[in-house]
């Protein structure tokens, strides 16, 4: 078996079974550095489960996930984050009781151990980095606001910002434009286009217009398996895909 070290991420033969039901079944795909890889597929195709497996939230029944040559299936969640994988959840997952500043500060990659956190100082570097990210995610005027008072779209941005501040090599976004107003959606697309430069990104998205705009490569999942893979034009013209997904 080849080691596939040329790829940033190589997923091979990944299977997870919940009481006999295979949510992801013998899944293999590869992500190159700087590649924007979109996963699409009907509901229940195993898209979110695939991301859960990569970031360690769900443990694989069999198969391997290698990130820069490291086997992720054996690592703990926080170690996977330290290796350079960032994950955004489908529903905005932010700390409602803390301010926007504190949300970003907690995500700043320093002082991650218990005693590191006790000794952590809010120095110039932290403040500048938080300010820089806040400007990127359109929240520079909301830094002292409690996160629970943000709009749905702003919460999505905040979570994206929390990932950005970690500067991950691989960014995984689960439906980043879901539930947004039209104007928020436009702004988010612009934001995503900016932040995905220079890093590999895996995106799950239903918005086909958005997918066409950004995707380098598209993987279509169906019942936990890869149905089709390639460029958006290739995938769109694949009769199998039209059959199960786009045709509906």
């Amino acid at each position: 078996m080849t080691t596939n070290n040329d790829f940033l991420l190589s997923v091979e033969g990944l299977t997870v079974s919940f009481d006999g039901f295979k949510a992801v079944d013998d899944l293999s795909f590869y992500v190159d550095p700087n590649e924007i890889h979109v996963i699409i597929g009907p509901n229940g195709a195993g898209k979110t489960t695939a991301l859960d497996l990569i970031c360690g939230k769900t443990r694989a029944t069999s198969g391997s996930i290698r990130f820069r040559g490291k086997e992720l299936t054996e690592m703990k969640e926080h170690q996977i984050v330290h290796a350079g994988v960032g994950r955004k959840f489908q529903n905005p997952s932010i700390y409602e009781d803390l301010t926007v500043f504190e949300n970003l500060e907690i995500s700043f990659p320093r002082g991650r151990s218990v005693f590191g956190a006790l000794a952590f100082k809010r120095d110039k570097e932290v403040r500048e980095r938080v300010a820089e990210i806040a400007e990127m995610i359109f929240l520079e005027d909301h830094l002292e606001e409690r996160a629970e008072y943000l709009s749905h779209g702003q919460k999505q941005w905040l979570e994206i910002g929390m990932l950005l501040i970690q500067n991950p090599e691989l960014l995984m976004l689960d439906e980043p434009v879901a539930g947004m107003s039209v104007s928020e959606r436009v702004k988010t697309a612009e934001l995503l286009n900016r932040i995905i430069q220079g890093r590999a990104v895996i995106v799950i998205e239903h918005d086909m217009k958005f997918v066409e705009d950004i995707a380098h490569k598209v993987t279509v999942l169906h019942q936990g398996k890869v149905l089709s893979e390639g460029s958006m034009t290739h995938v769109k013209s694949d009769p199998k895909v039209v059959e199960v997904y786009l045709g509906h």
Partner: peptide
Amino acid sequence: SSKLGRILVALRDKEDRVRFSGYDVAAF
């Protein structure tokens, strides 16, 4: 008032988010 204090509040609210921000939640 240290960052540890804010992490405690954060994990009370969204334990998974703290974990996927690179913290070993159990240690805290």
